[in-house]
């Protein structure tokens, strides 16, 4: 089952990041750059929503960043 395989990969990565890489990261007072709005993973949600709609309608893939969801995409 590919879903089991996929979950295994995610859990393994999570485990590695949670244990081996717990030295990664910053102290709370070092978040000056990360706290900027432009550093958010989805810094322009409206652009992302419009792009998702275009590419969902014009290509055979959707989702990844967030839910693929329903929709027609007929044209």
């Amino acid at each position: 089952m590919p879903i089991i395989k996929g979950l295994q990969i995610v859990f393994m990565l999570s485990f590695v990041l949670l244990t081996g890489c717990s030295s990664l990261g910053v102290e709370p007072w070092e978040r000056d750059l990360l706290a900027k709005k432009e550093m958010a993973l989805t810094s322009a949600p409206v652009d992302a929503a419009l792009d998702d709609h275009i590419y969902f309608s014009k290509e055979a893939s959707s989702g990844g960043r967030s839910f693929g969801g329903g929709g027609c995409g007929c044209n």
């Binding site: 879903i3 996929g6 979950l7 999570s14 990261g25 070092e30 960043r65």
Partner: peptide, 30 residues
């Protein structure tokens, strides 16, 4: 009609003061 179920699993990691990383796995069945 059609119905869709989506599952999403993600991990976000701050690497250092300049860098952040996200990894997602998503499963979708329609």
């Amino acid at each position: 009609s059609k119905s869709t179920i989506d599952l999403l699993f993600g991990i976000t990691q701050v690497i250092n003061r300049q860098m952040i990383v996200q990894l997602n796995y998503s499963y979708s069945t329609v």
